[in-house]
Amino acid sequence: MIDTKRNAWPMTDVARRIARRIARRAHIVFITAHTEYAIDAFKHGALDYLVKPIEHERFADTIARLQERVNSSHPAPNTEQLIEQLAAQLQRPNTNAPLRWIRALVGQALCMIPVDKIDFLRSDEKYTLIAWRDETSKQCEALIRTPLKELIIQLDTTQFAQVHRAVVVNLAAISHVTRAENETAQIALKGRDEILPVSRSYLHLFKQM
């Protein structure tokens, strides 16, 4: 796999260089934050591409495809068909399913946090604090490097709401909202001691107050 963020070449050049240097067939998967070169990369032998931030299920699907390709003695899939599928996908509006899992390092363990178990997310300098409940309803916290602004656009807007420039809350986790000074408010959470701020810009979300 190739992380194009660490390489100054576009996908097309990377695929072409690998194809020239490796006599046997190479199975190339690109990890990228940009898709403008993806179609050309397929023309030069790329098997698949992953767009950052990478979802667990999408990554697992790509690994399965790689294993199938390596273990199979059948000819490679039709490249033109792959190109057509990618072109159609790039032209469609962004209909990606909301984020379902967030990976976080807790101690020495890598945890897969179910998004629907998250109570709130809060920006913490260069990190994002994730506060959630585990399968026993124990309160847990972890810091991840992904900025809050990148996570917000992947969350289900019917479940999560930004209530402050540094805070996103799970609506189902809210116990009650109390009006505060200067057209702001405070959110109390079910079973948690934390009080979350609601800034003036987001007070309209609680019009009934």
Score class of each variant (00 low, 15 high):
residue 69 R to V: 01
residue 89 Q to V: 00
residue 23 A to H: 08
residue 131 A to E: 14
residue 189 L to N: 04
residue 157 T to P: 02
residue 18 I to T: 05
residue 87 A to G: 08
residue 16 R to N: 02
residue 189 L to Q: 12
residue 190 K to A: 09
residue 142 A to R: 10
residue 205 L to M: 10
residue 127 Y to P: 02
residue 72 S to H: 08
residue 9 W to D: 14
residue 160 F to H: 11
residue 156 D to L: 09
residue 204 H to V: 11
residue 121 L to H: 12
residue 199 S to W: 08
residue 93 P to K: 06
residue 115 V to F: 05
residue 209 M to E: 08
residue 202 Y to F: 15
residue 79 T to Y: 02
residue 61 D to S: 09
residue 135 E to Y: 13
residue 165 R to F: 10
residue 62 T to G: 03
residue 10 P to I: 02
residue 192 R to P: 06
residue 55 E to P: 00
residue 167 V to T: 14
residue 31 I to N: 02
residue 171 L to R: 12
residue 82 L to W: 05
residue 5 K to V: 00
residue 200 R to M: 03
residue 188 A to H: 14
residue 132 W to R: 04
residue 93 P to R: 08
residue 42 F to N: 01
residue 79 T to E: 10
residue 160 F to K: 10
residue 80 E to V: 08
residue 93 P to S: 11
residue 4 T to W: 04
residue 150 E to H: 14
residue 39 I to R: 04
residue 58 R to H: 14
residue 121 L to I: 08
residue 165 R to Q: 12
residue 6 R to F: 06
residue 33 A to I: 00
residue 181 E to G: 02
residue 154 Q to M: 14
residue 100 R to G: 09
residue 67 Q to C: 07
residue 81 Q to I: 12
residue 108 Q to P: 00
residue 8 A to N: 11
residue 108 Q to A: 03
residue 169 V to H: 09
residue 185 A to G: 15
residue 166 A to R: 12
residue 99 L to N: 01
residue 45 G to S: 01
residue 129 L to N: 14
residue 166 A to M: 07
residue 76 A to E: 15
residue 48 D to N: 10
residue 3 D to T: 10
residue 18 I to M: 10
residue 49 Y to V: 01
residue 30 F to L: 07
residue 19 A to E: 11
residue 178 T to A: 14
residue 202 Y to D: 05
residue 13 D to T: 13
residue 195 I to W: 01
residue 13 D to I: 04
residue 38 A to L: 00
residue 90 L to I: 15
residue 64 A to W: 00
residue 31 I to L: 09
residue 82 L to A: 04
residue 150 E to L: 11
residue 114 P to I: 02
residue 104 A to G: 03
residue 58 R to M: 00
residue 84 E to D: 13
residue 3 D to M: 08
residue 44 H to S: 02
residue 175 S to E: 12
residue 79 T to D: 05
residue 126 K to Y: 11
residue 56 H to I: 09
residue 45 G to N: 06
residue 30 F to P: 07
residue 161 A to K: 15
residue 207 K to W: 02
residue 20 R to T: 07
residue 77 P to C: 02
residue 109 A to C: 06
residue 27 H to V: 10
residue 71 N to E: 09
residue 88 A to C: 02
residue 94 N to L: 06
residue 83 I to P: 01
residue 133 R to D: 15
residue 52 K to Q: 05
residue 177 V to E: 11
residue 110 L to Q: 01
residue 62 T to C: 15
residue 148 L to C: 10
residue 16 R to H: 09
residue 22 I to S: 04
residue 106 V to Y: 03
residue 69 R to H: 03
residue 205 L to K: 07
residue 61 D to G: 09
residue 71 N to R: 04
residue 43 K to V: 00
residue 149 K to M: 13
